[in-house]
Design a protein around this nucleic acid. Structure first.
Lengths: 332, 332
DNA sequence: GTTCATCGTCGAACCGCTTCGATGAATGTA
DNA sequence: TACATTCATCGAAGCGGTTCGACGATGAAC
């Protein structure tokens, strides 16, 4: 493999000159630059990323930390992964994807060994054990999901409270008085997935203000439990005229459950939910829903992370992206 | 950040001694080792991965190359990603996940800059343009998916031909004579996704041998086209008594399509397919199917890759994992 | 015709770690 | 007692880059 030294020799200049030509950090005469370019082409030289990282203390790699919990619906996660990866590449970074079950250990490992310049944490919980490790790290981080303590950390999430209010308002506007809410599985709440209660509490509060009846339930995450629980919920509340589903796994199977029950939307039941456009397309979900925008979220997280790498002392940001309602005609 | 030099000073030994203590490459006296351990603990030293990589020419990182095509069903891909990531970590490697739309460029970039010790290519096509880049690389690669030319390359895939034969045999054994086959979308074939025709050709050949009628169709990859095409296919072949679905997107929506048509499985129609257990669980698929084993495949690919890194001259391997039929009672 | 910048280039030091060869001490052998 | 081994450690060189300070050559300013 050709090194910068080989290029230098071939071009008849010093190594530092080649380096400057490569980085553009100092002026180089046109003629020298051309000789260097020719040498690079001739030798097929590519800069050694590791050596550059050692010299510059910049790896141009971002760590992406995620875990697959049993209580989560994998397809939903993929959209974040892809968004982060794409956004990173646009900023010149590569992605080191880490799925260790030991989250804090993984954060520690990749930060303290200097494998990455920064870290994106997906699916952050209320008391996320990874955060201490992240705070102790030299590298900055960006969180997707809202922890209890956001000190020193940049967080990005959907405004679930507002999402809930938008959906409740929408149903209230149509005259619904009895509403069932399907939340994420109980286990998500226990784990500290704050989006669960942020949404639920806001929905309950808003419904109460309107004098609506709202009946919250936990969903399930694995078949056949998902269908079973949906059926049980619907059986339990026959008088409800609307359903709010805040759970990817449940919404994905809802069409077949409703079909099986002979329930027609929106004639017999109005349905609203939260999911991304892509997710809805994969599963043919025809419901009026708040867009969860994993692509925007992933991209924002990466962009802010990259910015913070160069400006470590910028004020911390907490960005809650605004939920947008997409009307798909599943309410009446 | 503490370096190995700091540790050496703290422990009162030379840097090389610390290095040997860390790697175990030379004997170190118990007493010295303890002093070094104490120093490491006191300073919170972690080895710098970049520097080590530069010195050893081993990054302990594996590149994972994948792309999301519009004609693919994203949830299926995730299982491979997870399997590769987990297996890699078990062997002490991290994963650099690259989703560039320019596949060959991505391979070139991460290999020639020495960012990785090896590469796993997912979803390899018949004439995959990434293979030339891979062959030109110093690092070995492992392919998931079967290209036309496997020279110099280790490949891993399901034995799709055998899978087709197993399914056809199964249907034939039950007395079916008219069978509809839903293949991957046409676009997958055009792109060179060989699993499409490997399966189809074997199924057709086998059916012919038995004197069965088999009607192959392309599926679709995006809703609402998936449901529409399934309906069109079923309309076109009312006399068929069995359905073979070789397409993740189609099988995922099949339950609701059949339900909508009032078709009961297996009373009105027998259905067999190919998908992994996890996939089936996410989507509650009740069909007798061949297990696609993405976890086995991903793990095998990584393990062989790791082996090849240390033994570059081992003979090339092409491993086709044996399809296993899981009976779920969707045939009669 | 000096003096000063500016431009383009070079050499050397450094980033943090590994590894080779050398060295001195301890041990075993004749 | 002398010599050969083995053990534990050290110093220096090297991995492939970047960057700082210096320096000669130009050209501009006075």
């Amino acid at each position: 493999m050709a090194t910068i030294g080989d290029v230098a020799r071939e071009a008849g200049v010093s190594r530092s000159t080649v380096s400057y030509a490569l980085s553009g950090n100092r002026p180089i005469s046109l003629e020298t630059r051309q000789r260097i370019d020719a040498a690079i082409a001739k030798l097929g030289f590519t800069i050694n990323a590791g050596a550059r990282a050692l010299a510059t203390s910049e790896t141009m790699v971002i760590g992406l930390l995620l875990q697959f919990h049993d209580d989560e619906f994998p397809p939903a996660m993929l959209q974040y992964i892809l968004a982060v990866s794409t956004a990173a590449r646009e900023s010149g970074y590569d992605i080191l994807m880490v799925t260790d079950s030991d989250g804090p250990g993984a954060v520690k490992r990749i930060t303290s060994s200097n494998m990455v310049d920064g870290v994106v944490l997906l699916d952050v919980t209320h008391e996320d054990p990874r955060l201490d490790a992240l705070r102790a790290a030299r590298q900055p981080g960006a969180l997707v999901g809202l922890p209890r303590n956001t000190e020193e950390l940049d967080v990005f999430d959907l405004d679930f409270g507002e999402a809930a209010r938008i959906l409740v308002d929408h149903l209230y506007g149509l005259g619904h008085q009895q509403v069932v809410l399907v939340s994420p599985p109980r286990h998500v709440f226990e784990r500290g997935g704050a989006y669960g209660w942020r949404f639920r509490d806001a929905a309950v509060e808003r419904a109460a203000r309107y004098g609506m009846q709202i009946y919250p339930y936990y969903g399930e995450s694995q078949q056949p439990g998902i269908s079973r629980s949906l059926n049980a919920i619907l059986d339990a509340r026959p008088q409800a005229t609307a359903l709010i589903v805040h759970n990817d796994a449940s919404i994905a199977v809802l069409p077949s459950v409703l079909h099986e029950r002979g329930v027609e939307v929106p004639r017999d039941l109005s349905v609203v939910s939260l999911y991304s456009q892509d997710f809805g397309r994969s599963f043919l979900l025809p419901y009026t829903a708040v867009e969860t925008s994993p692509d925007t979220l992933g991209r924002e997280a990466v962009q802010h992370l990259v910015r913070r790498m160069s400006n470590p002392d910028d004020p911390v940001v907490a960005k809650f992206i605004e939920p947008v309602l997409t009307i798909r005609g599943s309410t009446a």
